[in-house]
Design a binder for these strands. Sequence first.
DNA 1: CTGAAACCTGACGTTGACGTCACAGGCAGA
DNA 2: TCTGCCTGTGACGTCAACGTCAGGTTTCAG
Lengths: 123, 123
Amino acid sequence: MRIGELATRTGVSVRALRYYEEQRLLAPERSPSGQRHYPDGAVDRVELIQQLYAAGLSSKSILELMPCVVSGEATPELLDRLAAERDRINRRITDLVSTRGRLESVISNATESWRTGRPCRPH
Amino acid sequence: MRIGELATRTGVSVRALRYYEEQRLLAPERSPSGQRHYPDGAVDRVELIQQLYAAGLSSKSILELMPCVVSGEATPELLDRLAAERDRINRRITDLVSTRGRLESVISNATESWRTGRPCRPH
DNA sequence: CTGAAACCTGACGTTGACGTCACAGGCAGA
DNA sequence: TCTGCCTGTGACGTCAACGTCAGGTTTCAG
């Protein structure tokens, strides 16, 4: 498929797909006239890339971990990197859970003080 | 306390503290010579700001939600905003959990293929 | 064959949360 | 008084992941 279809099917922009290629996260074939041609598997791959971006990984990290993720190749260093990223994600999760708890208590507190007519305990 | 002490006590840079003030997230008093003077509560406040930044909120969002968080003041719109941010955090958490699961399966798969001498199932 | 839509490369613009630098004034100990 | 660190205000730099625009080529439906 060509770049436009891949874009619509993944929901990412054409520009982003070209950027991913620039970062060597994708390597589509080229037609004789120079147009990019992607295999079907590119859809999953792009979604994986998006997921890793969303998890806070940089292009460089994704690039390093990509061979391991797609083909299972692994060196001890790659496994360490993977574990390190997993740990970072774990930390982010616990941080977010904590923040959510704080927001929820703020919400219930504020809702209560709203319902009962504005006496609000000072934090 | 002055800005340097607040910086060391919170772990954020002096520049960041001045930036927060520029964003009206802090409003320290000034000594006659113009130096900023923070109350003790500023430490907690800065840590709250950091926590909200880490949760993906922008300066603007933090500014809007701040009165509600610190003093419990709430309008229906503010409560909606708070709930919306909580929902966004929830989505981020579920996304991160999913990504963590994926990474973990990659890790166990790669570890296995490493232990057993490199036959790796094709994803 | 033709015109619109999709594609190409290259290059500059954007955004947020600061880093960094220059230059000047303020403060405490010796 | 001197010295050295802290603080002040600009103002420009950074970085990543794209957005956007210009100017030209390719593809395809009619």
